[in-house]
Design a protein around this nucleic acid. Structure first.
Lengths: 254, 254
DNA sequence: CGTGGCTTTGAATTACATCAAACCTTGTGG
DNA sequence: CCACAAGGTTTGATGTAATTCAAAGCCACG
């Protein structure tokens, strides 16, 4: 919530907001979209894209703002264009489990009959494309490719969820943190590699709630990795993976 | 692995194996399938069903037998018709996380490009329908309803996975075990209610690996619930929920 | 009737949580 | 420009839930 997107690489919320001021039918905005090729939009050809542009609206969120909450009727789905979003579930007494962090290009809003099954909140300044679910799903008839793509996205998320269950249920604190750092790095490297430096836009508390740990344990574990020379922590929002292979080894528990 | 399906209710592996001796194109076997209405097959009308029957083959597994392993090319998908199957992932040192237990009517084999993302092993005597992935997915063109249905299944699984992450990351041992018992009961009650008696076909070790606990902790927690009069345990494979509401309350951490 | 695998219970250990306090950073207002 | 208030972070001391180690009990099966 504190994070100002200073120093973050393009992929994590640098400049490149929405290419045109306003989105809307036929404005051609999608053509210049930074993340198009990573989203379900890529399922459609540039010509077909008009059908999507006709129903999209853009949304911006400041850090800490909530996009939707668990149980709300899931009327829309979204593509994250800029910034970072966290998804989480809560227990009645306030315990929180973050089920995922989303980065530009990620899709969110997959939901069943019970409405959204989690809360979605902006971690940084965020830009999204909003699609009315009914209208988007209606396009499935004309463009089956679109549904194929969403199906594939759901499949990938399911695989990721299984990995996360393994992490939550069976890894130690150190393995959890190492895994987290590696995954962040993987995600960033989609752009380019930059000497192992990984931006960490979320708070220690967020990381803890993602890994099933407390803030203190996250902090301590990072300190220990630092003292062992595996990472450097120039400031709270950046970690440098000094010995990536060693960290991967810890993460995968070899 | 030990479990013999003695005393298990129909929904969990009672009589009702495959209605006809052999499955195969046009044999009409699907018409009398016990679980058809719960599976993706229900997306097709009885007339359309022939297309599915043309590609289905049946599989039987004894307890402990492996259906497929993580990383294998995912050439088939399956419908569980009878019995119980567990899905799990392993760490190199042998730590195991069970990501789900499947019951009759459940679908398995959703997988991305990297092949199956988990191992699938029979818990009890098991009967499944096997579908070559390519052939089944080819039917999507003629029957978009089929893809809709599979998409919906993936969505539901994703929701369940998020619940499980909350459980693994943030619930106490007691809350975990209570949640587990309630979910088992919900799943069984699809058939009918039977005075809170829930069949537990998996071992304590399986339960532990599903909940991110050790065998001992599972056993101790069950003993404690029993001593408090919330459950009865007539034998290792059965639990009676004596005070379902109280257990639900523990499970949801009110 | 003995053997092997699962389960239960007890005792000792430990990884992580909790409690507490100091430290930083950032933004605000005098 | 500085003081200080508010959050987030780090570190230390202490506590504890759950694990680990150990052993006995229970069944099912040959």
């Amino acid at each position: 919530m504190t994070t100002k997107n200073k120093g973050l690489p393009p992929a994590l919320g640098g400049p490149s907001p929405f290419p045109r001021r306003r989105s809307g039918p036929g404005c051609g905005m999608c053509a210049s979209c930074d993340v198009r090729e990573y989203t379900f939009c890529a399922a459609l050809s540039p010509q077909e894209m008009g059908s999507i542009e006709a129903i999209v609206r853009s949304v911006r969120l400041a850090p800490g703002q909530i996009l939707f909450q668990e149980g709300e009727e899931a009327s829309d789905v979204f593509n994250l264009v800029r910034g970072v979003v966290k998804l989480y579930k809560l227990l009645p007494d306030g315990r929180r489990q973050i089920t995922g962090f989303l980065f530009p290009g990620d899709f969110l809003g997959i939901a069943g009959a019970g409405g959204y099954s989690y809360n979605a909140e902006a971690v940084t300044e965020t830009g999204l494309c909003r699609f009315p679910r009914r209208q988007l799903f209606a396009l499935f008839e004309r463009f089956p490719k679109l549904e194929h793509r969403l199906f594939a996205i759901a499949t990938d998320e399911l695989t990721a969820a299984q990995d996360q269950m393994l992490l939550l249920g069976r890894k130690t604190a150190e393995e959890k943190v190492a895994s987290f750092l590696c995954r962040l790095a993987d995600r960033i490297d989609l752009g380019e590699t930059r000497g192992g430096e990984v931006p960490v836009p979320m708070t220690r508390s967020d990381i803890g709630d993602y890994l099933g740990l407390t803030v203190e344990t996250v902090s301590r574990t990072l300190s220990r990795l630092r003292k062992r020379g595996l990472i450097a922590v120039p400031d709270v929002n950046r970690v440098v993976l000094l010995r990536r292979e060693a960290i991967e080894e810890i993460a995968e528990a070899y």
